[in-house]
Design a protein around this nucleic acid. Sequence first.
DNA 1: CATAAATGATACCTATTTGTAGCATATTAT
DNA 2: ATAATATGCTACAAATAGGTATCATTTATG
Lengths: 133, 133
Amino acid sequence: MNFSKTASYSLNVLSYMATHDNNMSAAFLHEKLSIPYPYLRQVLTSLSKSGFIHSTRGRSGGFAFSKQKSDIFLADIIESTDGLESLNKCILGFNSCPFNNECSMHKVWEETRNGILKVLKSTSLSDLVRTPD
Amino acid sequence: MNFSKTASYSLNVLSYMATHDNNMSAAFLHEKLSIPYPYLRQVLTSLSKSGFIHSTRGRSGGFAFSKQKSDIFLADIIESTDGLESLNKCILGFNSCPFNNECSMHKVWEETRNGILKVLKSTSLSDLVRTPD
DNA sequence: CATAAATGATACCTATTTGTAGCATATTAT
DNA sequence: ATAATATGCTACAAATAGGTATCATTTATG
Ligand code: SF4
Ligand code: SF4
């Protein structure tokens, strides 16, 4: 009942970058966020390939946003890592529903997941900014 | 962003049993729910050990509820499989929050997860019954 | 130019989850 | 009694997720 580590690390990295701006190296992010360095490298590469950020190589290289922070929504980040399909499954784990979509969980779960989706789709990285340390 | 297979299978099995009553064998449940038979066996044993159901061995054995269906809440089932702690983590994946618990996701996520918890804690197996096939 | 500091790419290892197999034991029908 | 049909137990295998290690390439700086 939570996102994968990869998704969490991605949110973590991007939200940190969004609130501190400018170019950041993997080594710096590793130090700040305590994400295992080699794993973090992979996550950053993958975020680059997804188009959220881009890299510059060489001595003072690192990663920076490729798009406006206001154009990157949390749902985009989850979509690129875990996918969002899981939010459309029966919470009881049935593949074919024996209750004709009418058991007492159905509606309430539908509303909950729509709520989650709505928040993820309407919150961009620029919306997160509050009191960064 | 969903429960483990073990948790889903457990919900699936128990909700099926709740709406069809009486003693059921693993073989029968396997046929009805298409859960891999050996895995299902393990799940059923584990649900027995958790006290939701009990088994009787031998030729006409199988599994039946040990408690009133109205006393088994979905939250109990999730607790015994995946645990519920995951619902208390920062959605952005921070261990120590750099936003002083004030980023724009915090409150909304808190409300969402409290909503999920509330539903899981207030829905018992007997509440599920609707139009079983 | 040489060095240091960065990413690109990729192969590998480890832990967890999911799924399989087999034998022991219990109970019922015949 | 014996066979059939159950679960108990437990070891193993496969798939996935999480994490590590290495070397090549790029670029700024002295
Ligand atoms: S009605 Fe209940 S069992 Fe059927 S799909 Fe909806 S949540 Fe699942
Ligand atoms: S304020 Fe935001 S980053 Fe901090 S714990 Fe809450 S959700 Fe996580």
